[in-house]
């Protein structure tokens, strides 16, 4: 791996919402190309805030965040947008624009590269359209391009969301609870798809997950966040029950005993 291998370098990242207390207390995170990093932690720990600070959806309060060596915190206007289009973001399944077709939703991943009037008239370069078709096929939605997004199932919607983010040709992928509101099987399929696509394109990924099982299964590295501080960092194998208690608080993590009680 070359020296240009470090995609993201976060140092002392802090965030306080206006009038509120500090939500992130100085985080340091490094990410290599092709690496799949998962962030876990209790609700309100600041996982979403972390992702949003990276692509500037909310402004960070202090610290530094370098994308391939270039500082992206504190950028504004066109520079901010130029940075954003290099960072794909995948939200929960409901973050599609319902009344647009699947194709329009996917093509909106190219908005950062397209002028206003072309996008208004839905005239995207042929290369973008071809890329969108290929991605739709890749995520298993061939032939769905003219379906309206609100006529899709949760899993299908998430596939559209993935296609939209990948059409940006991103270097970094931010994923916020991609499997919330999906059934366990669909959730695994979506995670597997993400993992495969990340590997194919040598993408760096930060994914927030609530499901520790999925996190163990699909990540290269796991970060545990609690109240805005990193309390665990390591390989999936290092995530023991006692580490889980540090992250989430005391709890009996074994699964069998619950079954015993009900038996």
């Amino acid at each position: 791996m070359s020296g240009n291998d470090k995609v993201l370098q976060i140092r002392a990242l802090r965030k306080s919402y206006p009038g509120g207390v500090e939500v992130l207390h100085g985080l340091d995170i490094d990410l290599r190309a092709g690496e799949f990093l998962t962030v876990i932690g209790p609700s309100g720990a600041g996982k979403s805030t972390l992702l949003r600070c990276i692509n500037g959806l909310v402004p960070a309060s202090a610290g530094s965040c370098r994308l391939r060596g270039a500082e992206i915190l504190g950028l504004r206007g066109a520079e901010m947008r130029a940075a954003r289009r290099r960072i794909g973001m995948i939200f929960q399944a409901h973050a599609l624009v319902d009344r647009l077709t699947v194709m329009e939703n996917v093509l909106s991943g190219r908005l950062g590269y397209t002028g206003f009037w072309s996008s208004w008239a839905r005239r995207f370069p042929p290369g973008d359209v071809a890329g969108a078709f290929r991605l739709l096929e890749r995520v298993g939605l061939e032939g769905y391009e003219d379906r309206r997004a609100d006529r899709l199932s949760g899993g299908q919607r998430q596939r559209v969301g993935i296609a939209r983010a990948l059409l940006q040709s991103p270097e970094l992928l931010l994923v916020d609870e991609p499997t919330a509101s999906l059934d366990p099987k669909t959730a695994r399929q979506i995670m597997r798809l993400l993992r495969e696509l990340a590997a194919e394109n040598n993408l760096a990924v930060i994914a927030n997950l609530h499901d520790v099982g999925l996190a163990r299964m699909f990540s290269d590295r796991i970060i545990g966040l609690n109240a805005g501080t990193i309390v665990f960092e390591g390989a999936p194998g290092e995530l023991t029950d006692s580490e889980l208690s540090t992250i989430y608080g005391e709890e009996d993590w074994s699964t069998e005993e619950v079954a015993d009680v009900s038996a």
């Binding site: 947008r81 973050a95 950062g112 939209r164």
Partner: peptide, 23 residues
């Protein structure tokens, strides 16, 4: 959420309006 998703792709304010809010 859809509006944020459009912002996150790097769309300009006009595009956020036409893709995220208009529909």
């Amino acid at each position: 959420d859809p509006v944020e998703a459009i912002r996150a792709t790097g769309g300009s304010p006009g595009q956020v309006l036409t893709y995220g809010i208009f529909p």
